[in-house]
Design a binder for these strands. Structure first.
Length: 589
DNA sequence: GCCGTTTTCGGCCCGACTGTTTTCAGTCG
């Protein structure tokens, strides 16, 4: 059983316990464990199998949860979950997705009106039965009725790239206000998460009323959900919620820190503050000693962290994963930046399914100040994209030869995105691949095969001496297609063994390897190559989304292969151990 | 359910806003 499955089961247990009204701290223990395990860069099964280690070494996992994890790995089931499901039908959990319905109200509906599904909830609201319950009223009933439609889409989070468009539009809208001194988007957008569930804006102004009016007047504002002295929430026409907080300058840093989160990061932070006799909230850092509640810091975000003797963490790291430990050890990584990127090693042209010609792609790459690119059109198996056979590929390489003469200082690599066939093996003959400067291998077909089949196919590709990297290594499309079943641990171990690179595909719908998998690659000392997989000249601009994902994984410039010049990068391929980091504990075999 | 250089028991982050209430519980972030 994989980490993600164990995490999902613990989350489900937490949902059911919450519904039951269980001890909130017990609940939190399950939620914490779910997140910790989901974020772990190595399989818990591996920790369990290693006699020198214990699951209880993982923060937040005690004896009880460790034994539950063992049970899950050994038997695939958890008796506690079965017991809970025997008492509470899983369908009631859908009610928790209705905005305004929490565990208490949902439980009241279930117990007093026997409501088990959203359909039954709708009927009860329409019949006016919900308003009869104690603690409910007419208004609540209306809110629930509206929320039921939203609940169906509640799981849907938009791509960071889409969120960015909305953020830029809103910033432009606010720009006409002269009473705004500072404005910052916060929340998961600022942390660079691959998807965003709502938008948070923090504003420094002495005129909160005017700022809130401005948001209310935004052309895409559908309705106002709440509006108080300092805080306002609205829903956009598309359904996305926008939260706005307006504070004066001396509180801006504290509020920005608070609103950027993550929630878990803030919980840890406040716990640390408490130990130091301090209290942190969105209004600042305060001393809590008796008879003294004086303000310590709050104007700048860095001041808030400094008050706790912590570095001002890059927002991408604020997930309560390893950042506090890194800070404690003085090892906070210097994260990779877009300016570090020198080349792009995955892109298509009109020869297959790209929209721009070879020459247009070269021009566009030069305009973006890249030093080298690899042209990697599809191989023939991808008939839908008019994939290249050996003859057409060699013809393209001739064209590249001509362009190399034309664009002297710029490096154009002869590459191919070669399919890994369903039956295993590569889509082009070895002698052809051997002539290429750069070969990315990818799985496009047979994605429904078993984990062992797909893993074997990829392992086979890694063994091929001409293959340089595995492209979009899980095949997922966020919100649209699940990753195919693949044992990434085996793949990463093999990549390290053969000195191969792994791609982080920067397309906002792909972004695989994801942040957790990138951290796993780093653990295996496998270099990551961040590539755009551009199908047009504008497609080259998605690089920054890949950078955000890499930063969330804690990757540095040294961890990302295409921050090097091409000669140096080429030296990494086929070498073992893959590349030197700080101290090598010997090659991993 | 986890955790401990104050603790093996008794803590566990903190505040804004709403609706249904007459002082607060529930929800949310």
């Amino acid at each position: 059983m994989q980490n993600a499955q164990i995490a999902a089961i613990f989350d489900r247990v937490a949902d059911l316990l919450e519904f039951q009204g269980a001890n909130p701290f017990r609940l939190r223990a399950y939620r914490n464990a779910a997140r910790t395990i989901g974020d772990l860069s190595e399989p818990v099964a591996a920790i369990l199998a290693d006699e020198s280690r214990s699951l209880t070494d993982v923060a937040g996992i005690g004896d009880d949860l460790a034994s539950k994890i063992s049970t899950l790995i050994e038997t695939g089931t958890l008796p506690l979950l079965d017991d809970l499901l025997a008492k509470i039908p899983a369908s009631v959990l859908g009610m928790l997705r209705v905005p305004g319905l929490g565990p208490k109200k949902a439980a009241a509906l279930y117990k007093q009106l026997q409501i088990e599904s959203l359909d039954q909830l709708r009927e009860a609201c329409e019949a006016g039965r919900v308003r009869e319950l104690k603690g409910f009223g007419k208004k609540t009933e209306e809110t629930i009725l509206e929320g039921i439609d939203l609940a169906a889409h509640a799981e849907e989070r938009i791509y960071w790239a889409e969120a960015d468009e909305l953020v830029q539009s809103l910033l432009a809208h606010f720009a006409k206000l002269d009473c705004i001194r500072q404005i910052e988007p916060a929340g998961s957008y600022r942390r660079g998460r691959e998807t965003v569930g709502d938008l948070d804006f923090l504003v420094d102004s002495d005129a909160p009323g005017r700022v809130m009016d401005c948001l209310a007047e935004y052309s895409e504002t559908d309705r106002i959900l709440a509006r108080g002295e300092t805080k306002m929430s609205i829903r956009l026409v598309g359904g996305l919620q926008v939260d706005l907080r307006v504070v004066p300058a001396d509180l801006f840093g504290a509020a920005l820190q608070y609103f950027t989160g993550s929630k878990d990061h803030n919980v840890v932070l406040r716990g640390m503050a408490k130990q130091k006799g301090l209290k942190i909230n969105e209004w600042g850092v305060f001393r809590t000693a008796e008879g003294d509640d004086s303000y310590v810091a709050g104007a700048k975000e860095a001041d808030v962290y400094a008050a706790l003797e912590l570095p001002c963490f890059p927002p991408e790291l604020r997930e309560a994963r390893q950042e506090f430990q890194w800070a404690h050890e003085g090892n906070l990584p210097q994260l990779v930046e877009i300016a570090d990127i020198r080349g792009d090693l995955h892109m298509h042209t009109t020869a297959t399914d790209g929209k721009a010609t070879l020459e247009e792609m070269v021009e566009a790459a030069i305009a973006r100040r890249l030093q080298y690119i690899a042209i990697t059109d599809h191989s023939k198996r991808v008939t839908m994209a008019n994939g290249l056979d050996a003859r057409r590929l060699r013809a393209q390489w001739k064209e590249i030869d001509a362009l190399r003469d034309q664009y002297g200082g710029f490096t154009i690599l002869k590459g191919i995105e070669c399919d890994i066939l369903e039956s295993g093996g590569m889509d082009l003959p070895d002698d052809v691949l051997a002539e290429a400067d750069w070969v990315v291998a990818s799985v496009h077909y047979g994605q429904n095969q078993s984990e062992s089949q797909i893993t074997d196919r990829i392992l086979g590709a890694l063994e091929n001496p001409s293959v340089s990297a595995i492209a979009h290594p899980t095949g997922r499309l966020i919100n649209r297609r699940k990753p195919y079943a693949v044992d990434l641990e085996q793949v990463l171990a093999a990549a390290a063994r053969f000195g191969k690179l792994m791609e982080l595909n920067a397309n906002p719908a792909r972004l695989d390897l994801d942040d957790v998998a990138c951290a796993a690659a780093k653990r295996h000392r496998v270099p990551i190559v961040i590539s755009t997989d551009a199908h047009s000249t504008r497609g080259l601009d998605v690089m920054r989304y890949g950078i955000l994902q890499a930063r969330r994984a804690g990757l540095t410039k040294a961890d990302v292969a295409n921050t090097r010049d091409w000669q140096e990068l080429r030296g990494l391929i086929g070498k073992r151990p893959a590349y030197p980091t700080q101290e090598l504990a010997g090659p991993t075999m």
